[in-house]
């Protein structure tokens, strides 16, 4: 199980990377930690002519606060977040998500940017960052642009990068004062791809909430205005008001025909809501 041959370049700066992308004549893949692309290369499901290794670029390996916003370079790893090597403006939400991704040896090289660009629906960041209202910073030769994560992830393994563009950073807004966070994923065994993800960011004080149903077949289902899940109103009693039938209806509307899958997704979302309300004790991170 060895990859098809490819050339390899490891540019030392963003301009050099963009030049490399521009120059390339054949098919090109960017690689960061390689924890998702690596298996596909080894299985020869992906056979690029050139692999551009982006982990030597300093800008990608930084984290900083801009006002209340956390800006994580694309090559910050899950372990960096898990270990607290980057600032936290989410009340521990990022850290908890990071620590439950796959396994430690994978987290030591797997990156947040790589995970988002790979956009596997079953992966954690796609859903978690959507729920947290994060956005991505994209650079191309003609400049930079920013997209909300929900606009960036367009489908299963599909993102809104144009030819010649790269994801450089993820911008995560501060968790609002008093906002409740719940994130639950359902796996058949630890470290496995999720079969269902529920993520909620609820602001009982302002009556707002975001809810994400993830690990579906395509891009996660986002309810930017989650009050229909709570009988039309979000308040301090939001957990009691959670309406599974509304969530089920949302999934039907999104085209999920399989009743069993819907039941599992609704259950997981309900548990994320309960967790946000503090109804379930904080358990151990369920990942290796």
């Amino acid at each position: 199980m060895k990859p098809a041959p490819f050339a390899w370049e490891r540019p030392a700066s963003l301009p050099a990377l963009l030049d490399g992308l521009d120059r390339a004549t054949g098919s090109v893949k960017l690689i960061a930690g390689g924890q998702s692309l690596g298996p596909m290369l080894n299985l020869r499901l992906v056979e690029p002519d050139l692999v551009l290794d982006i982990t030597g670029i300093p800008e990608f390996r930084q984290a900083r606060m801009e006002g209340g916003t956390l800006v994580l370079g694309a090559c910050v790893t899950h372990a960096d977040i898990e270990d607290g090597r980057v600032p936290d403006n989410t009340g521990g939400a990022l850290r908890r998500v990071a620590s439950a991704i796959a396994y430690r040896p994978v987290r030591n090289r797997g990156t947040i940017g790589g995970s988002l660009v790979h956009a596997d629906p079953a992966a954690d960041w796609v859903s978690a960052l959507t729920a947290l209202g994060a956005s991505v910073e994209i650079a191309g030769r003609s400049g930079r642009r920013t997209l909300p994560v929900e606009a960036f992830v367009t489908g299963a393994l599909d993102v809104a990068l144009r030819p010649g563009e790269v994801l450089v950073a993820i911008r995560i807004p501060a968790r609002p004062e008093g906002a409740a966070w719940g994130y639950v994923k359902h796996c058949a065994k630890i470290g496995e791809f999720a079969h269902a993800i529920g993520a909620v960011l609820i602001e009982p004080d302002s009556g707002r909430g975001r809810a994400v149903i993830g690990a579906v077949e395509g891009a996660p289902l986002l309810l930017t205005e989650a009050s229909p899940l709570f009988g039309g109103r979000i308040g301090a009693d939001f957990a009691a008001r959670f309406d599974p039938a509304a969530a089920d209806a949302a999934l039907i509307a999104a085209g999920m025909a399989d009743r069993v899958a819907r039941h599992v997704h609704v259950t997981v979302l309900a548990r994320a809501v309960a967790q946000a309300a503090g109804h379930t004790p904080t358990t151990l991170p369920e990942a290796a």
């Binding site: 298996p39 299985l43 058949a188 065994k189 290796a288």
Partner: peptide
């Protein structure tokens, strides 16, 4: 199934 991501072996936690 062609990988251990599809064919699940029990791990230490299971």
């Amino acid at each position: 199934a062609s990988t251990f991501a599809d064919y699940l072996l029990p791990g230490p936690a299971e």
